[in-house]
Design a protein around this nucleic acid. Sequence first.
DNA 1: GCAGGTCTTCGACGTGTGTCAAGGAAGTGG
DNA 2: CCACTTCCTTGACACACGTCGAAGACCTGC
Lengths: 131, 131
Amino acid sequence: MSRKWQTGAVPKTLPVLEDVSPICCRPLGSTRGTLSYDEAVALAVRLKALADPVRVQLVSFLLAQDGLEACTCDLAPAVGLSEPTVSHHLKQLYAAGLVDKERRGMNVYYRLVPDAVSAVGRTLTIDATAG
Amino acid sequence: MSRKWQTGAVPKTLPVLEDVSPICCRPLGSTRGTLSYDEAVALAVRLKALADPVRVQLVSFLLAQDGLEACTCDLAPAVGLSEPTVSHHLKQLYAAGLVDKERRGMNVYYRLVPDAVSAVGRTLTIDATAG
DNA sequence: GCAGGTCTTCGACGTGTGTCAAGGAAGTGG
DNA sequence: CCACTTCCTTGACACACGTCGAAGACCTGC
């Protein structure tokens, strides 16, 4: 996969995580040179999943729960939005691998994957010796 | 500042950094409970600035340069886009405090602010003892 | 001042994104 | 099987975003 659009008004869609190289989350500074477009996309899709206030709130809410998990019925009131909207955001977090989901009885529990979030964070952490 | 939109189709604009609480970049796990909407916005605007493949490439390119800096005329070919487009992306990185700019003669040099990028990264790094 | 180079802003275009209401799918309990 | 709860999907809406070309602003050098 390389950049599909070069000219004109152009789709800026970022692919889903499954279509994206799993090569990710090496510290940015470990590449001597510009990131390839594919690597940049791989990182950007993960950042994009977190680049929304509601999703940041959802992550922080899960992080504060015992077992790092909660059902939609708890998450919607926690952020003050309708359940479909929260479901939409959770779907994006799930697609980015940042949360897991599991049905237990009538409820669907979403559980934070802390390693996935931390991995994105480490990518952004720049070695002090760089430059 | 609290959530301005509650119902209907709604502007999802994130404010600029200056309008946003400077409280940011504490590790997500350090808040026992859901992040306030304001704190979530403060983090989201910074993440959003990085959540684009082109901007990720620009950051990685700057990181590989001596002095962490380059002029627009070098950055545009590095990512294969027009100068206006690159200027647009640099403006967003600048607004988020992730790069500095300085005019020297005919050129404008953009310099990476590694601490700002790292600060965002640390926010996402979850303490292993959490949960 | 004038010519030439570099960068930013403006205007326009098409696509993406966040939100909700309404309806459907999946499970529980009678 | 039916009523009920919980959750997800679909459809629709308005706004935001990434992109470019053209034009303006800024600096340099003659």
